[in-house]
Nucleic acid binder design. Structure first.
Length: 849
DNA sequence: ACCTCCCGCCATGCT
DNA sequence: AGCATGGCGGGAGGT
């Protein structure tokens, strides 16, 4: 209906004539390519690769002979188009697939290296890209928005974005995972699945309970709005952007990714994702139209993520039938809590079977299951820091891409995700980079040591061990973190990211918090609203961890009071300014009101902000950026804090790799600076706590995971294994060891129908386990621990931890006792992230079966 | 008939 | 006012 002719067509026709020069642009037929000879090739290659991945694309391309076209005379082609509607016609008309966002995204990605050299100018001009790719700008926005949500690009100014590539990807994913955990997405997924199940059978049954849960969790938590999570290194975009940040596509994209990172099987159906993203109180109630719209958007996002090879489409077979779903094919991210390291991509572990038992144990231990728990959640975390200032600066004016620097990796490596080998290579590269980076920092040595022996456990070895040995114990610890509900809201949480150094701050939208409140009542323990919570990160400037800590503390303090209520947050947000976040999200109309109020608040808040840091209103994650890392380093050097801090997270997570430990140490440093408030779940590990304490002066700390870096650790492990340094068995076997076994059996049951059978298969072996990383971690932790853990952690850490726990006012309350603990809480948080999710998954998955 | 999701109108909000 | 963004949903291509 709409336009009979598409732009492309028109463009093609017209352009050629008009601008012969732009050959590339012109290509009528295909939209795609533009061309410049050179780029072309690369692009083509990429495409080829991609196509390999997706058969569909491949076939199409082949048919068309896209490349050929180029080679051929453009003019001719044009003529053909005009002339021949028949043959060419076909070709010329791209057919929808050719115009697909996924393909477009591939083209887009082909233009830039996965690991760009920060030193180089990586600016992206949207107009140019649109022209070159021969698409509407609108499409480019779709792509860029998703990439932005992953911090692969950041907005510089009006028509400009800076390409970061995958340098920050691991961190981002780690952060998202944490946030996802805080939001209890895994739980939400389970609930939804449960409901569905039940509905199938008996409607009446669980229903009520589930609803409650969902409502509480969902509604309260965060979902609706969301907050945009920002990364440390990455700056905030232009003001205008900020204002809309919360916008759905970006936020939706992050949430969507969170779902994968949190769920055990790592397979998320569109239906569930849509429901969670909508935050429906009642799933059923959802408006159809709203649901449909959400689905549409999810497809858009999924296409981009697929192009990034982070997910792949599959079908989940349930009793009812097949449902479209997507499977995470990106790097495993290490666990959250621990922050350990990212996981290794492919680790293999097949722990699936075991997990259940673990889960059960966990549940029994911790929770009470029947209720939902929710606790918390939400989390938000805010950062403080200078970031704000940065943001503002950035706001309107395009800032220069300084940020990139932070990424340490200097090199640009082009990595190719696909293959294992590639991965390994990549890992190595990364490791090298990291190591180099770390070295720079000083801590390097730590990391190294960490690799093998030190292992994560070191810091929190005790914790880790405890967990390992006695899961139950762990939980409590994990619980501890909770701290915060009150705090959380107000306080910014800082996530430690170790290596990279950057931390993220998450902001939640205030609004949610407010709304949330009511719900709170529902679950007593639960934290009010996750969303509201914010995490604070430190500033880069604060480099010194201590300073940061102080600052944060201050900020936190100030915030705390407010934290309970949304108000404070709002204020914070206002500061952020841009972040008005959510507001708009809903739709313009509704938002207006909010915005107005928000603005007011903001102004008010601004004053507050000045004080210490700023809180960001919306829920964004703010990257501490390098600073954090720096701080960490410094810290490390100082050591006081350092040793211990990181552990917590790690603890949970990785038993396995010593790597983790290392990371943790680094992390610790990071941690210092920031606080975390972990609202949710908390899992904080003691270590984290410990870290906090340092900074904490006032603030509470919760632990938090530090996600980001983990990757590095993961990588390290991975590499080590490859190298033979570490016995692979460790990882693999590891699973068993720990009691926790990650994998949920059911997962297996799930039928995933990969579109590409082959691929999937591959994954099976490799990744197979849906949540390899997690699983592994668990397993690792268990198994490994023995070996690695042995390494004693620095005592300090433990002490710190203890302190932190105690200190945190809020935190403690939640601890175990709180309902949150229930199953999810318990498992998730602490150790479990791995476990819990799995269970959840299982449940959900079961459906699949 | 359902799944995907392209396309572009038009609101939003910065300049 | 103009322009950049991007929410949104109609409705079409694919299967």
């Amino acid at each position: 209906m709409k336009t009979p002719l598409k732009e492309s067509t028109a463009a093609n026709i017209v352009l050629p004539e008009i601008q012969p020069d732009l050959g590339p642009l012109t290509t009528p037929t295909k939209p795609k390519e533009s061309t410049q000879g050179e780029p072309w090739t690369p692009t083509a290659n990429l495409k080829m690769l991609i196509s390999a991945v997706s058969p569909e694309i491949r076939s199409r391309d082949q048919k068309r002979g896209l490349f050929d076209n180029r080679n051929g005379l453009p003019e001719t082609k044009d003529c053909l188009h005009e002339h021949l509607s028949g043959d060419e016609y076909e070709k010329s008309q791209p057919s929808r697939k050719e115009k697909s966002l996924g393909l477009l995204c591939h083209k887009f990605l082909a233009r830039y290296p996965n690991y760009p050299n920060p030193a180089v100018n990586n600016d992206i001009c949207l107009d140019e890209v649109a022209e070159e790719l021969n698409v509407e700008r609108r499409r480019i926005y779709d792509i860029v928005n998703v990439l932005e949500s992953l911090h692969m690009v950041s907005r510089l100014a009006k028509n400009r974005y800076t390409w970061h590539g995958r340098h920050n990807l691991t961190k981002t994913l780690g952060t998202l995972k944490i946030v996802g955990e805080e939001n209890k997405y895994a739980e939400q997924i389970m609930m939804i699945k449960k409901k569905e199940y039940e509905q199938e059978f008996d409607f009446n049954k669980s229903y009520s309970i589930e609803d409650h849960i969902i409502k509480s969790s969902t509604g309260q938590n965060e979902h609706p709005d969301m907050c945009f999570v920002e990364l440390p290194g990455v700056e905030f975009r232009a003001a205008s952007v900020n204002s809309r940040k919360d916008k759905s596509l970006r936020v939706m994209s992050q949430k969507f990714v969170m779902l994968f990172l949190v769920s055990t099987p790592q397979i998320v159906s569109l239906e569930i994702a849509a429901k969670i993203l909508i935050g429906e109180d009642h799933v059923e109630d959802l408006d159809k139209s709203k649901f449909k719209t959400k689905i549409r958007r999810l497809y858009d996002i999924a296409n981009v993520l697929s192009s990034l090879e982070l997910i792949k489409k599959v079908h989940v077979t349930e009793e009812r039938g097949r449902k479209p779903a997507f499977k995470w094919t990106g790097p495993e991210i290490s666990p959250n809590h621990s922050g350990i390291s990212p996981i290794i991509p492919f680790a293999p572990s097949n722990l699936e079977v075991k997990q259940p038992s673990k889960e059960n144990c966990a549940k029994n231990l911790f929770s009470t299951r029947g209720k939902p728990s929710f606790t918390r959640h939400p989390s938000l975390i805010k950062l403080v820091k200078s970031i704000e200032s940065d943001r503002r600066k950035i706001n309107s004016a395009p800032s220069s891409p300084i940020k990139t620097n932070k990424v340490e990796s200097s090199q640009n490596s082009a990595a190719f995700p696909n293959k294992m080998a590639q991965l390994a290579a990549i890992c190595k590269m990364q490791l090298e980079e990291q190591s180099s980076d770390s070295r720079k920092k000083v801590k390097i040595h730590l990391a190294r040591s960490g690799h093998y022996k030190p292992v994560a456990p070191l810091d929190t070895p005790s914790n880790a061990e405890l967990e390992m040995t006695a899961p139950s114990l762990i939980h409590p610890l994990g619980v501890v973190p909770l701290i915060p509900s009150p705090l959380s809201s107000a306080v910014p949480v800082i996530l430690p990211q170790a290596p990279s150094g950057s931390s993220y701050a998450i902001y939640l939208q205030p609004a949610q918090a407010q709304t949330l409140t009511p719900p709170q009542g529902l679950s007593p323990t639960v934290c009010p609203i996750p969303s509201s919570e914010t995490v604070g990160s430190k500033d880069s400037t604060d480099a010194s961890g201590e300073k940061v800590a102080n600052d944060t503390a201050n900020s936190s303090v100030s915030t705390r009071p407010g934290s309970l209520l949304p108000g404070p947050e709002r204020q914070g947000t206002k500061n952020l300014d841009r972040e008005p976040t959510g507001e708009r999200g809903s739709k313009r109309a509704s938002t207006l009101e909010d915005s107005g109020s928000k603005k007011r608040f903001k102004e008010e808040l601004k004053g507050l902000e000045n004080v210490s840091t700023t809180l960001f209103p919306s829920g964004y994650l703010i990257p501490l950026t390098q600073c954090s890392s720096l701080g960490a380093e410094s810290i490390l050097s100082s050591k006081e804090n350092s040793g211990t801090l990181s552990p917590n997270h790690r603890i949970y997570s990785s038993p396995i790799t010593g790597v983790i430990p290392v990371t943790s140490s680094e992390l610790t440093a990071v941690n210092f600076p920031s606080f975390h408030v972990t609202p949710l779940k908390l899992m904080v590990s003691p270590t984290s706590v410990a870290a906090v304490p340092v900074g904490n002066s006032t603030a509470l700390t919760s632990s938090h995971p530090i996600p980001m870096q983990n990757p590095s650790s993961a990588i390290v492990n991975f590499t080590l294994q490859h190298l033979g340094l570490i016995s692979p068995s460790m990882q693999v076997s590891a699973s068993p060891g720990a009691g926790t076994i990650p994998m949920s059996p059911r997962i297996e049951g799930v039928s995933v129908a990969p579109e590409n059978a082959g691929k999937q298969q591959g994954r099976g072996t490799k990744y197979d386990s849906p949540a390899p990383g997690q699983n592994q971690l668990n397993g690792q932790s268990v198994a490994v621990p023995g070996a690695q853990q042995p390494v004693p952690v620095t005592p300090k850490g433990s002490q710190l931890v203890a302190e932190s726990f105690f200190r945190t006012p809020g935190g403690p309350t939640k601890l175990l006792g709180s309902p949150c603990m229930d199953f999810d809480g318990a498992s998730k948080t602490s150790i479990g992230t791995l476990f819990v999710p799995q269970r959840k998954l299982e449940v959900s998955t079961e459906d699949v079966h």
